[in-house]
Nucleic acid binder design. Structure first.
Lengths: 243, 243
DNA sequence: GCCTCTTAATTGTCTGACAATTCATTTGCC
DNA sequence: GGCAAATGAATTGTCAGACAATTAAGAGGC
C-alpha cells in the first residue's frame, strides 16, 4: 500500500484508491484487517475525517466492511456474487436511464446476450429450472396481472433459463444485464393479445429447453427479440414513466 | 428524498441510500444540484461529518460529483459508459479473483457471451473494426511478445469484434465481461505453437467477419473457446500470479 | 465596458471530544 | 479453583468548531 500523496486534491480519493489497488493486486487479502483509522492517519499523514471518508468510499463499493469494538476495524470483504450482482444492476440501470438508450438497442443487446446461453441451458438444465419456467409461464397467463408484474415474471422466467446453463459467471453477467433492462421493458403496455403471443413463445422455449434442442431455443429467442422490438416500435410514444 | 432515519446504525449509510434512491427513481435529475452539506445536516438532523461520509459513498459509485466554490456543491452525475465500464471491470475482476472461479467456467462464460455478437458484428462491422482486428492479429504474430502483452492484444482484438456489432449496450456488457476475465487468462503460459494456433483462429475469424458470414464466425469462436479451455486444462497447475 | 478587489458560499481538512460497541482482563463472590 | 460481574482498553460512529482552498458573483474604479 503506497503512502505518498501525489496531488494536492481530494486526499480521501487518493487514499481510497491506494487501498483499493492494494486489495486488487493482492497485497491485502480477503478477511485481512486493515490498519486502524488512527494508524492510517499516521501512515498517510492526514486527519481522521480524511481517512474515514476514504474508508466509506471503499465500503460503498463493498470492498471492505467495518466492525466496531476492541477487535474491530476494517476488513477486506469477500465480494460475493450477490453483492456484485446488485452493484451491476444499479450501475447498468442508471447507465441506461441516463443516456437515452433507445428501446430497440437495449432489446437487441438483451436478447443477443440471452441467446448465448440457450445451447448450454438446453444441455444442462435441471428439473428445477424447467419447473420455474413453467410456473412463470403459468403466472404470465393469469388475467388481471399488472404490466409490472408481467415484466417481473418475464425476468424470472429468463433468469431460470440463464441459470439453467449451470455457469455462475454467465448467470452473474446475464442476470445483471437482463434485470437492468427491466425498467425499459416496463415502459411497454402489454395488451391481452401481446401477452398471449409472448406466453406462446415462452412455452415453445421451455419445450425446446426441455427437449434439449439448443438450436431451436436460440431461434425462438430470436423470434421473441423480434416481437419485443416490434412492440417497442409501436408503443414508443406512450413513454410510461416508472416511479 | 426521505428524511427519516430508520435504525440507530450507520447513519451515513442510510443517508447515502436515501439519496441514491432519489437518484434512481428520478426525484433527482441529472446535473441537478443537491442541497449543500449544511442544508443536508439540517434536513437529516445529523452532523456534517455524517453527511460528508454519505456523499463520499455516493461519489465512490459515480452517482454524484462535487465542486468547490461559491456555486459549487454536489451534483447528480450522468453515468457515462466509460465510468460504468470501469466499475463493472473492477467489480467483476474482484468477484472472479476472490471466489476461486475455475478457468474453465470463466472461459465458457466469456466465449458464450462473445458468440452472441458474432452475427451482429458480421453484419455491421465497419472497415475500422476490421483494421483493428487485423492490426492486433499482426501484433500477436510478433516474436518476443510477453504473455501479458499477448493477452492484452487478444482482449483488444475481441473488443473490436464486439464493437463491430454497433450496439453500445452490448459493447458495454461484453467488454466489461471480457476484460474482467483477462487476469484469469493471464495465468496461462502460451508457447509459440499455441500462439500460432490462436493467430490462425483469429485470422479465420476476421475473414468470416469481413465476409459477413456470422454463422461461421460463431463456429470459429466455439473452436477458440474449446482450444482455450484445453490450454487451461493442461496448464492448470502453473498458477502464475499476476501482480 | 473592462479590470481588479472584495465578499460570500461551499467543499476539503484538521482537531478534539464524546458515545457506542466489543473483547480481554481483572475483581469479587462462592 | 471456578464462575459471574465489573472494569478497562481499543475501535468505530457521531458531533462541533475551526480554518484553508476554491470559485462565482458583485462592487468599485478607470
Amino acid at each position: 500500500m503506497k503512502t505518498d500523496l501525489d496531488d494536492n486534491q481530494d486526499l480521501s480519493k487518493q487514499i481510497a484508491e491506494a487501498i483499493r489497488d492494494a486489495i486488487i493486486n493482492g497485497s491485502l487479502l480477503v478477511d485481512q484487517r486493515l490498519p486502524s483509522e488512527a494508524e492510517l492517519c499516521e501512515k498517510f499523514s492526514v486527519g481522521r475525517s480524511t481517512v474515514r471518508e476514504a474508508l466509506k468510499r471503499l465500503a460503498a463499493q463493498n470492498l471492505i466492511r467495518t466492525q466496531r469494538g476492541a477487535a474491530g476495524g476494517a476488513f477486506v470483504n469477500r465480494m460475493s456474487f450477490e453483492e456484485a450482482y446488485g452493484q451491476q444492476i444499479t450501475t447498468s440501470t442508471l447507465l441506461l436511464s441516463m443516456n437515452e438508450v433507445d428501446f430497440e438497442t437495449a432489446c437487441e443487446a438483451r436478447y443477443a446476450l440471452e441467446r448465448s446461453c440457450a445451447p448450454l441451458s438446453a444441455q444442462r438444465r435441471t428439473p428445477d429450472h424447467l419447473a420455474t419456467m413453467r410456473a412463470e409461464i403459468h403466472r404470465q397467463s393469469q388475467p388481471g396481472l399488472t404490466d409490472e408484474a408481467f415484466c417481473a415474471s418475464d425476468v424470472a422466467f429468463h433468469r431460470a433459463l440463464v441459470d439453467g446453463a449451470g455457469n455462475p459467471v454467465l448467470s452473474y453477467q446475464l442476470a445483471g444485464a437482463v434485470e437492468a433492462m427491466q425498467p425499459l421493458m416496463n415502459m411497454i403496455t402489454y395488451t391481452q393479445r401481446d401477452r398471449e403471443r409472448i406466453v406462446g413463445l415462452h412455452t415453445r422455449l421451455a419445450d425446446a429447453i426441455e427437449a434439449q434442442v439448443g438450436d431451436q431455443a436460440a431461434t425462438i429467442l430470436g423470434d421473441l427479440a423480434a416481437y419485443t422490438a416490434e412492440l417497442g416500435r409501436s408503443r414508443a410514444l406512450q413513454s410510461k414513466r416508472a416511479d
